[in-house]
Simulated assay, not measured.
Amino acid sequence: MYYLNKPVSSPKVIYIPKGSINKIITQMQSRNYNVSKLDILLLRLFGSPQSGWINIETTLNSRWDFLYKLTTAKAALQNITLIPGETTYIFLNQLADELKLNRDLLQKEYEQQSPYEEGAFTPNTYSLPIGITEKIVIKILLNESLAQMKNLSIKLFGMYNEKKWLQYVTIASIIQKESASIEEMPLVSSVIYNRIKKGMKLQMDGTLNYGKNSHVKVTPSMIKEDTSTYNTYLYSGIPPLPVCNVSFDAIKAAIFPAKSDYLYFMKSKDAKHDFTSNYSTHLSNIKRATK
């Protein structure tokens, strides 16, 4: 009874892997939870722990309560969707709002854990436990995103080269911001590569929709005043980092651009784009669109 009443400290929400009781206790020990081999025997009396996320509600429990909750508690999950083309700044706002987390702590954890300022998340719908900490939610999202990216890279190239992959994600982020549809993505990609090949600046508005500017309408004054490296009117080539988080469709378009001689595109009245290799035709398309 003395042993069962000893306190056990842990996060409120913890993850229990699938496997034997021995494996579960061993992993908890590796995470510095105050558990021992004796708990293996006790858990066999309580029953097998449930796998997945569990919410034990408090950070300090008696050993009896802690072991009991391992076998009975479950954490409520909430679906969070990261939309392709959304920036991390906006997504962290969404996480803070929907999971009732601290926005500043999310930003701090992202900056500490992520290798990149932008583009480290994979757009998807994630089931996250309510009550999770800011540190763990960022860790989960980054780990799952990296695993998905590595799997796609290995599928396409047979390997994962971090530096090369970041370059593709950066190009894909421009494609994501500029394209009106998945079907257009390879064409937008071809314009990017064609302009770079000819030594032309990209001059694409979407590169200015970074960070807080994700949904801001790009204006002539904004183009003139923004001196960041995202401004492709000011700097040649692609930005040093992605503009946003990108879909696999955009990444595939960045890797496999359409074969074309297009150098310009302009949004038409049907929300799609008119592509052309001739500047005079491009000017006509602009006049038609503005009318």
Rank of each mutant, 00 (worst) to 15 (best):
L4C: 08
S9T: 15
V13I: 15
I14N: 07
I14Q: 06
I16H: 07
P17L: 15
K18Q: 14
G19K: 12
I21V: 10
I25S: 09
Q27C: 00
S30F: 09
L38I: 10
D39M: 14
L42V: 05
G47Q: 12
N55T: 03
I56Y: 06
E57K: 15
K74P: 09
L77C: 07
D97P: 08
E98H: 08
L99G: 07
L101M: 12
R103D: 00
K108Y: 15
Q112Y: 13
Y116G: 05
A120V: 01
T122R: 12
K139Q: 15
I140C: 11
L142T: 08
N143R: 05
M149N: 08
N151K: 14
S153L: 04
I154Q: 15
F157C: 00
K163Q: 12
W165F: 11
Q167F: 13
V169F: 03
T170K: 02
A172D: 13
Q176R: 01
K177M: 04
E178M: 13
A180M: 03
S189W: 10
S190R: 11
K201T: 04
K201H: 07
N209D: 01
G211A: 09
K212P: 00
M222F: 09
K224L: 10
T227P: 01
Y235G: 14
Y235A: 14
G237H: 04
P239Q: 05
P240W: 04
P242D: 05
P242V: 06
V243Y: 03
N245K: 03
S247G: 14
D249S: 12
K252T: 08
A253S: 14
A254T: 02
F256L: 11
P257Q: 13
P257I: 13
A258G: 02
K259H: 09
S260T: 15
S260A: 15
Y262K: 10
Y264W: 10
K267H: 04
K267E: 03
S268H: 10
S268E: 14
K269F: 11
A271H: 04
K272H: 14
T276V: 02
Y279D: 11
N285A: 11
